[in-house]
Simulated assay, not measured.
Amino acid sequence: MSERRRGRAVSDVVAFTLMFGIILTSVGLVATFGLAELNSFNEHQKIENADRTFELIARSFDELEESQATVRTEAIELGGSSITVEESSSLTVTVRDTDTGTTHTESFPLNTLQYEVDNRLIGYENGATYRVRTNADGGIINRDPGLVCSDGQAVLSLVTIRAEEDRYISGSGTLRITGRLNDSSLLYPVSDTDVGNASAADQVDLQFTFSGESRAREWANHFDRAPGDWSVTSQTDTSVTVRCGASEDLDHVYVRRSIIEVSYS
């Protein structure tokens, strides 16, 4: 074989080796970073879909609260995630007449319908929807609850979530979530003419208390930016207290509590 042919053969081998190496490197990069990007995209889509589903759930539960229906059903794709009713929050409502010093107090559980995907929790609690990271500081109330404090009036719609069965659902496929209105009662006013009527109050305090994954920070941030005469009066890692009627006395106070039973199918 001539020197020219031998050199050409060596060049072909080197070129082939380099090209093969480039192909292997490209495949490795695509496999490493492409799959990571694909997994990140899928995770983002699951979270966005869950956000939209919980917005629908909140609207359906609003209809139950307002007695527009007695039963409402929505569906969510589990996709390897889980959902449950967590008994992890409670509320104490104190209606105060500052002129007479009288108070009316009610305490009850709120609980939360909560969906867990990777390290995020998406849920419905007291008329609101939220998204938080587990064991982290980041979180937000996505949808405002039915709590109005403006023009000298407090109109507060409070919601307790209960599970018909103590079930933690996980896996894949579509899960149907059904809410049923169990009870709706007026907590305040408690009478029309005596102490406890709608106009015999100046301030309302709401104390949210949490166990497990706390959402005190998210609720405090919500009330800091909420329209109306709200103020955060105290906050710890596991509780937050807010006041309606912080800057001026209220003329009328109405507090209603609804109980919604949740079941799965």
Rank of each mutant, 00 (worst) to 15 (best):
Arg217Gly: 04
Phe33Tyr: 14
Asn135Tyr: 11
Ala75Lys: 14
Phe54Ala: 02
Ala216Met: 03
Val240Phe: 03
Glu116Trp: 09
Tyr254Gln: 13
Phe223Met: 02
Glu65Lys: 15
Val253Pro: 01
Phe20Asp: 05
Ala50His: 03
Ile122Asn: 00
Glu77Val: 14
Asn39Ala: 04
Tyr254Ser: 14
Glu261His: 07
Ser247Glu: 11
Ser157Thr: 11
Val71Asp: 07
Cys149Trp: 00
Ala216His: 01
Phe208Leu: 08
Arg8Lys: 10
Gln153Ser: 09
Gly21Pro: 03
Leu187Gln: 05
Asn49Gln: 12
Glu165Lys: 10
Leu56Ser: 11
Leu35Val: 09
Arg257His: 04
Asn42Asp: 10
Leu38Thr: 13
Ile76Cys: 03
Phe33Ser: 03
His44Lys: 15
Gly34Ser: 05
Thr238Pro: 09
Gly139Pro: 04
Thr70Arg: 12
Gly212Pro: 03
Val95Arg: 02
Thr53Ser: 08
Arg167Glu: 13
Gly127Gln: 05
Ala50Gly: 08
Arg120Tyr: 13
Thr174Ala: 10
Phe16Lys: 08
Leu78Lys: 02
Asn111Pro: 00
Gly21Tyr: 04
Val148Glu: 07
Ser11Val: 13
Val159Glu: 10
Leu91Met: 12
Val85Phe: 04
Ala50Trp: 02
Val242Gly: 01
Ser81Ala: 15
Arg256Ile: 12
Thr94Met: 07
Glu77Lys: 13
Arg176Ile: 09
Leu147Asn: 08
Val190His: 05
Ser157Val: 06
Ala226Trp: 02
Leu38Val: 12
Glu218Asp: 05
Ala75Gln: 15
Thr160Met: 04
Phe208Cys: 03
Gly138Val: 15
Leu158Ala: 03
Leu64Pro: 01
Glu248Cys: 02
Thr73Ser: 12
Gly146Ala: 15
Arg6Met: 12
Glu165Asp: 12
Arg176Ala: 14
Thr73Cys: 03
Asp137Gly: 11
Ala200Pro: 01
Leu250Trp: 03
Glu37Val: 09
Ser185Glu: 13
Met19Cys: 15
Ser199Asp: 07
Glu248Gln: 13
Gly138Lys: 14
Glu87Thr: 14
Asp118Leu: 02
Thr84Gly: 09
Asp97Pro: 05
Asn221Arg: 11
Ala220Lys: 07
Asp224Lys: 13
Pro227Val: 05
Asn49His: 10
Ala128Trp: 12
Ser239Met: 09
Gln207Cys: 07
Gln207Glu: 15
Ile259Thr: 13
Ser211Ala: 09
Ala15Val: 13
Asn126Val: 06
Leu78Tyr: 04
Gly79Glu: 05
Thr193Ile: 12
Asp51Gly: 09
Asn135Cys: 05
Ile169Cys: 01
Gly212Cys: 02
Ala128Asn: 07
Tyr124Thr: 08
Met19Ala: 15
Phe16Cys: 14
Asp12His: 15
Ser90Pro: 00
Asp166Gln: 06
Arg4Val: 11
Phe20Met: 15
Asp99Phe: 11
Leu206Cys: 00
Arg6Gln: 10
Glu65Gln: 15
Cys244Gly: 02
Tyr188Lys: 01
Val13Gly: 05
Asp137Arg: 15
Val204His: 02
Gly146Glu: 11
Glu63Pro: 03
Gly196Cys: 05
Asp51Phe: 09
Ala136Leu: 06
Arg256Ala: 10
Glu55Gln: 14
Asp97Ile: 01
Gly138Met: 13
Glu3Trp: 11
